[in-house]
Amino acid sequence: MSAPTRAEVVAVAVAEAFRGDGEILANPIGTIPMIGGRLAKATFEPYLLMTDGEGLLIENIMPVGVENPEKVIAAWNPYRSMFDIVWNGPRHVMMGATQIDQYGNQNIAMLGGTIAQPKTQLLGFRGAPGNTINNKTSYFVPNHSTKSFVAHVDVVSGIGYDKAAKLGAHAARFHCLPRVVSNLGVFDFETPDHRMRLRSAHPGVSIDVIVAATGFELEIPNGCPETRLPTDAELQLIRDVIDPNSWREQELPNPS
């Protein structure tokens, strides 16, 4: 078995974000998040329910980026039913973030300018406000830099812990941001005031590199560990079953 690539380390870090979730809808968005989520289901979280990327919930471990994959269909889940799950609660979504700040506020809507005339129009709010106020929301950021990890997001799409705190404990009782996974490391908000903390640095990435690529003060625990390496069994699942065409290496090329 050849050495794991950065994309494979990251996929395992994504899988770890779903550890302990039990029987909920794991809803990672994007190629590597989907690989990681399916890896979690294939190994330590077998009762996760996952989508086919569209309107079906499936029970088998479906490969990513393969034409007409086999699907063991468990349930019909058109968009309207997805909102039923989001608002009911048993879901952990992993979204992207164009910008994220130290409390986990996320922006995918627009950059610069004003709401009336943004400098750069992005996707829109999509489902971020509803996700973050209703169920677990983690983030995947494949391009960690001071442009993506920022002191202040231009627009709050998904709400962070400071915004949630202002709403009060009752209103924000379902708000939970378990994890942020980037190409450089793994982060969480397990600090007294829920500021972002480095949970682990990926092998080969120094803490100095992470600090320099982050536009706010990151909590760095003493003796911060390295992100764990994939096991041989995990590598085999990723390479042979979940992503046989290696789409992961395109989404996150191995650092040279």
Binding site: W87, F125, P129, T132, I133, V156, G158, I159
Partner: peptide, 12 residues
């Protein structure tokens, strides 16, 4: 709905 609370959707 609680959707939108805390976010800039409510800047509108």
């Amino acid at each position: 709905t609680r959707v939108g609370l805390g976010s800039d959707v409510l800047a509108n």
